[in-house]
Write a protein that binds this DNA or RNA. Structure first.
Lengths: 338, 338
DNA sequence: AGGAAAAATGTAATGGATTACATTTTGCGT
DNA sequence: ACGCAAAATGTAATCCATTACATTTTTCCT
């Protein structure tokens, strides 16, 4: 094992000088620094991070907790987090919580045991009081989702406005019977989308029939979306448009429609949310709301490190990034003869 | 900061005893252990991992390097890796190399600087000689892909056999004009699939026309797949089946066919590879080769830790897991009138 | 009860880098 | 050439858990 001591000997200086050189301290004479660097090179010295972390009381690691990462939505955010962390010389420990409480506990411990300096939470299932206590002690930021009134910075889009805009768009196309497939979870995004839908409908003077509002399961699974869509399409009168709170659910609605022999968008308009890659990998291309996933990931890192490096009080900063309505093929004017 | 010393004081023992208790040493009297645990509990003590890592010269972290993780194929493997690591109390540092050489360097450094104990490589672009040197010094295992003749364990499926089986299946359905969309990279899987296709064609006494073999770009992107498919479908005579080396490429072939007004599988059979989730999220459901991604991830971890814990010489163990031909809707007998 | 072996616990060195403080060297003005 | 401030470097304490080795306590046999 090559230690700093060996480097110091070889360069004919003390360990302090080596350390200072490696940390770019301006107090080292260029000529000395040069000699040190040569010694480092010659010996192939790589500093032991554990020792540094112990002394500095930091780890240069951040946690990213997601309920799963088979969902491309999370993958994209995680990619953004990874990119930005890379630039800032941080490493990302990606944790798949699966929504389990004991996973969450263990990840918290990683911060207390100094294995990680901070954490980014992507839609986790923490209960409020626990999260509140956690947020006080540790540096965390929430991404995509957030708990209102929690002293913890967050990055997301304005789900409420985006949904209203989408539902208003459907109305402009001429739709009156607009249904919704939501999800059975407590995420703020889910709630805001629901409220956006209801408010937009009311604003348009449109009726919201109870059997036009359906819930898929918490994870937006394709199968549960299909079941919800089948139920909706069996309703009488049948809706002419379905607003889905995720692209996967929209896909399942399209599949359900096709299985009933209904053409999309000819006989049924379907819209999604998120704008995942595969929305344009099949026909009809999906009309949806694009979220700047990558950028959300990046900004989460910045927000986290702001708090980490400034050692300020935890801020309550909430960042809302712009979304975009992607008008594509799956939404069209309703068939008025129907 | 609560240190082991404070715990020792409170429990009325020495730090050694506290340490032993926490590491489940059998040398501690149960009654003493109990007192120690109470003190730990009372003070909310969490051991400082940096200190432990420094002393033990390990990190309990493993690296997982992937060229990207927006591809669901990698996500699923990473999920398997994460699950197994979790069970074994290891953390996974997921690294998006983007195929950049400097990323790879930095990740290597993480092992040398004791931030990680080992690494799992998912189809990275390392050049052979560098990888060979790396494998000697560090614990690595390759997943999905592998460099032949490298003293480094690996986990994958038998890509050659799987491809031959698929192409033979297409022949059994009655196809004679079978095209292939490959990828422009050096992965062993890509090469084996190509060879499997060629050998299966020869075995069936079928001609392989040059314009029936096309390359998508290295990342199997949808757009490049579409271009390849369009070129194939413009060939005369037109192939009746296309074997694609990935599901994404198969999707792009289906999209290209639909844009030409060709029905799948009525007028064109298309098959994929990997069996990603969305193969059954649209119609026609894709006929493809299922890879046990999750299990591949899990076994990679086991293989890595075998090497890590036994401190044996790096083994050359190659594990091939079973694949499965998923017969679904996108492949059917060719239209004989065509 | 005596004493050796086994069990339990304690003491202190250790891992490797950082950094406060101490000391030496350099630069500069006169 | 002298002396002082500034620059450069060095010494040694520090971060905290682990563990080899030393010491004390317990067990159990005669």
């Amino acid at each position: 094992m090559v230690t700093i001591e060996r480097v110091a000997q070889r360069a004919g200086v003390s360990v302090a000088t080596v350390s200072r050189t490696l940390n770019n301290s301006p107090a080292v004479k260029p000529a000395t620094a040069q000699r040190v660097r040569q010694a480092v090179e010659a010996l192939g010295y790589v500093p032991n991070q554990s020792a540094r972390n112990l002394r500095r009381n930091e780890s240069q690691v951040i946690l990213a907790l997601a309920p799963n990462f088979s969902n491309p939505y999370y993958s994209r955010i995680l990619t953004g987090i990874g990119d930005r962390a890379w630039e800032l010389e941080y490493s990302v420990l990606v944790c798949n919580t699966l929504g389990h409480a004991n996973s969450e506990r263990r990840f918290l411990k990683m911060m207390e045991s100094h294995q990680a300096d901070g954490a980014i939470l992507l839609g986790c299932h923490w209960d409020y009081s626990w999260l509140a206590r956690f947020a006080q002690r540790s540096h965390i930021v929430q991404c995509c989702e957030y708990v209102p009134d929690l002293a913890c910075p967050s990055v997301s889009i304005d789900n409420y406005a985006a949904t209203r805009e989408m539902v208003a768009y459907l109305q402009r196309l001429g739709h009156r019977r607009i249904a919704m497939i939501g999800a059975d979870n407590q995420y703020i995004s889910t709630r805001l989308r629901r409220q956006g839908y209801l408010d937009a409908m009311e604003e348009g003077g449109l009726e919201v029939r109870e059997d036009w509002y359906r819930l898929a399961d918490a994870d937006y699974s394709f199968a549960s979306g299909q079941a919800a869509a089948q139920a909706l399409l069996a309703a009488a009168p049948r809706p002419t448009a379905i607003f889905c709170v995720s692209d996967i659910l929209a896909l399942s609605a399209i599949a359900a429609a096709q299985e009933l022999g209904l053409s999309v968008p000819g006989e049924l308009t379907v819209t999604g949310f998120d704008d995942l890659d595969y929305t344009t990998m099949m026909h009809p291309h999906l009309t949806t709301v694009a979220q700047p996933c990558h950028e959300m990931g990046r900004q989460s890192v910045d927000l986290l490190l702001d708090g980490l490096l400034d050692r300020e009080e935890p801020s309550e900063q909430q960042i809302f990034l712009p979304y975009r309505l992607m008008e594509r093929e799956s939404a069209a004017a309703p068939d008025i003869t129907a």
